[in-house]
Write a protein that binds this DNA or RNA. Structure first.
Lengths: 245, 245
DNA sequence: AATAAATGTGTCTTTTGTACATATTTATTA
DNA sequence: TAATAAATATGTACAAAAGACACATTTATT
C-alpha cells in the first residue's frame, strides 16, 4: 500500500480516475436504545423502489474532508441532534453488489444512546425505533450489518462498561439486569448478576432510592465518573493474558 | 444509507464525481509467520520519498470489480503465491491525512501463514520478514495497523484454533507452546498450557514422534480435520453467554 | 392487617485457573 | 557404556470464579 498508490495517483492525473476512484465509501449506524424493556434499533423507511416497504439503517457517504470515524458522529448529530454518543466501529462490508445504486463499501458502527436524552433533530415521521427481536428483513445487507453489530455488542457488554450508555444517569440494579437480559436475549439469575456487577466495580452507590415503583424501591446507582467519558475508548479492559497460565 | 446514495448518484451523473468518489479504498495485510522462534511480519521497503528507509505493509487498492474481502487474498496470492490462507478483517482506518498521496481509506486484515509452504511468487529482494518485537516505526499509519492486528490476534488465539495456520501440518506440544509464547509475548507454564489445549479438543494425536531433535522426542499432533478449513470461518466459538449466569 | 412483589443478602458446589515437583526418556558426551 | 543434559509426561493441592439455589425483609397496594 505504497508503491501502488503512488503509481496510481500518477495515472489518475491522466484518465483513469473513474477506474480507481469509483468506489464510494459510506458509514452505516446501528443505533441501539433501550425502550419499553426492549433493545431497539433506529431505522428509516427506505425510499428506493427496489426496497420499498423495507427499512434501513442510518448512513451517509463519507465526505472527502472528514475522518472515517467522524462520519457516524455527523450522521447521529444530523439525524437525532445527539452529540458525544458512544460509537464503536465494527466491520466493513464491501461485496460488489451490496448496494443497488453502485459500488459502495460501508463501514458499520454501533451506537448506544439513552432515549431520554434530548433528541433535537429527531424526525418522528422519518425515523422509528424497532425492537431488534422483531426485525426480519432490512434493505441492502443491513440485516447482516445489524446481526454483526448485535453480536459484537453482546461480546462486549459483560467486559466493558458500555451498557450504561443505554440507561438514564441513575438506575436500579433491576433496571440494569433487565437491560442486560434484553441485550443478551436470555434471563439472568439476580443474585449472580449482582455479584458479577459488584466485582466489576463500575458502579457508585448513590444512597438514593427508586421512587414511584409499585413495589419495594431499590437503591439507585450511577456509573463511576471514571468510566463516564463519552466518545469513549474502552475502559477496564481485562487483558487477554489474564486467563493464560 | 439509501436516500443519500440515491440523491448523490444523480448528482454524480453531472459534475460532482470528484467530490463524492474521490476517496480511494485499499486493503493492507499484516501477514504473520512464525520463523526462528519469533512471530514475524512480512514487510516491503517503502519507495515513497516521504518514507524512504521505512518499511510498510503489503496492500493494494480495491478493484472496482472485486469484493472488499477478496482483495487481501489477491494481494497475498500476487506477492507470495499462497492461496487459501487464513485471513481476518480487523479494522478500517480512515483519517484524512493518513496517506501522503491522497485520501485513502484502508481496511486492515491479518493473515497467518506457514513459512514452509511453497511461496512461489515470493520476491526476496522486495519482501522481508521482520520480528514483530523489533518493529518500531513503519510508513504511513502502518505501525498502528500492525499493533491493532497483533492485539486482535492475541485476543483470538486462545479462543479459536487459528494459531495452527502458522505451524506445519505436524507439530509437537513444545513447538505449539513456543508459538503461543511468541504471539502473546509471555512465557507459559508447560503443564497448565497442555491442560488448556487438551480441554479445547482441537488436536489429534498422530502416534508419531518428533525426529532429529537433540533431546527426547515428543509426540506429534495435528489439528483435527474438523477445524482445518482454510479461508476459515471461526470454529469452536465459545458463546458469550457461557459466563453469564 | 394481609397480600403481592420486589429487594437484599449468603452458602454450597462445580468448574476453571494457577503454582508447583518428580519420574522418565532420549540424544549427546566423556 | 556410563554419565549427563535436556526435554517429555504427568498429578495434586490451592485459589478464584461461576452457577444453582432459599430465605428474611421492605414497601406499596388492597
Amino acid at each position: 500500500m505504497d508503491k501502488n498508490i503512488k503509481l496510481k495517483t500518477a495515472e489518475i492525473e491522466k484518465s483513469s480516475h473513474l477506474e480507481y476512484f469509483n468506489i464510494a465509501i459510506s458509514v452505516d449506524c446501528v443505533i441501539f436504545c433501550y425502550k419499553e424493556k426492549k433493545l431497539q434499533v433506529l431505522l428509516i423507511q427506505s425510499d428506493l423502489e427496489e426496497y420499498s416497504g423495507l427499512y434501513s439503517l442510518l448512513g451517509d457517504l463519507v465526505r472527502p474532508d472528514e475522518d472515517l470515524d467522524s462520519a457516524p458522529y455527523r450522521v447521529l448529530k444530523q439525524r437525532t441532534g445527539m452529540e458525544d454518543v458512544y460509537l464503536e466501529q465494527v466491520h466493513t462490508f464491501g461485496t460488489i453488489n451490496r448496494h443497488v445504486s453502485g459500488r459502495v463499501i460501508t463501514t458499520a458502527y454501533y451506537s448506544l444512546i439513552d432515549i431520554k436524552h434530548q433528541m433535537l433533530n429527531f424526525d418522528e415521521n422519518e425515523l422509528h425505533w424497532h425492537p431488534v427481536k422483531d426485525i426480519r428483513k432490512l434493505a441492502f445487507d443491513h440485516k447482516m450489518i445489524l446481526d454483526t453489530c448485535l453480536e459484537r455488542l453482546r461480546e462486549q457488554v459483560m467486559e466493558y462498561p458500555i451498557a450504561f450508555n443505554l440507561l438514564p444517569e441513575k438506575f436500579s440494579l433491576r433496571e440494569l439486569q433487565k437491560l442486560y437480559e434484553a441485550i443478551l436475549g436470555i434471563t439472568l439469575d439476580r443474585r449472580n448478576f449482582r455479584k458479577k456487577i459488584a466485582v466489576k466495580g463500575w458502579l457508585e452507590d448513590l444512597d438514593q432510592m427508586e421512587v414511584n415503583v409499585p413495589h419495594r424501591p431499590g437503591k439507585l446507582y450511577t456509573l463511576k465518573t471514571l468510566y463516564k467519558k463519552r466518545r469513549q475508548t474502552r475502559k477496564s479492559k481485562p487483558s487477554v493474558l489474564d486467563s493464560v497460565s
